[in-house]
């Protein structure tokens, strides 16, 4: 099987000013390209799902996770980074 380079970044927490700015700033600094963003308020929680291309990133996945995690803590949010295939596999044949 082929492993692609797309990541799903999910951000959960209380809504506030500057979430997209904060998260996308980390991605811009590490040269991760955002392909799609959607956000909603689900059951009172701010929920953002990003699809991002990791192919030309300047850092490894470990470091990207760490940076996003730090930014998440700063903003009071939980940030999860996962390869997109996990979702594709789980929900589609």
């Amino acid at each position: 099987m082929e492993e692609g380079n797309r990541l799903i970044i999910t951000v959960l927490g209380h809504d506030r000013v500057g979430i997209i700015y904060g998260i996308s700033g980390v991605l811009a600094n590490t040269n991760v390209n955002i392909l799609d963003i959607s956000q909603t308020i689900l059951q009172g929680f701010f929920t953002m799902v990003m699809v991002a291309d990791f192919a030309d990133a300047t850092v490894g996945l470990d470091e990207l996770k760490l940076l996003l995690d730090q930014k998440g803590q700063e903003l009071g949010l939980r940030v999860t980074v996962q390869h997109e295939d996990i979702f594709r596999y789980m929900h589609r044949i």
């Binding site: 797309r6 799903i8 999910t10 959960l12 392909l35 799609d36 959607s38 909603t40 689900l42 929920t47 799902v49 699809v51 999860t80 997109e84 996990i86 979702f87 594709r88 789980m90 929900h91 589609r92």
Partner: peptide, 13 residues
Amino acid sequence: QFAVSKEEILETI
């Protein structure tokens, strides 16, 4: 195309 919905992503998480 990425064809999984936001609800499905959140379900997995």
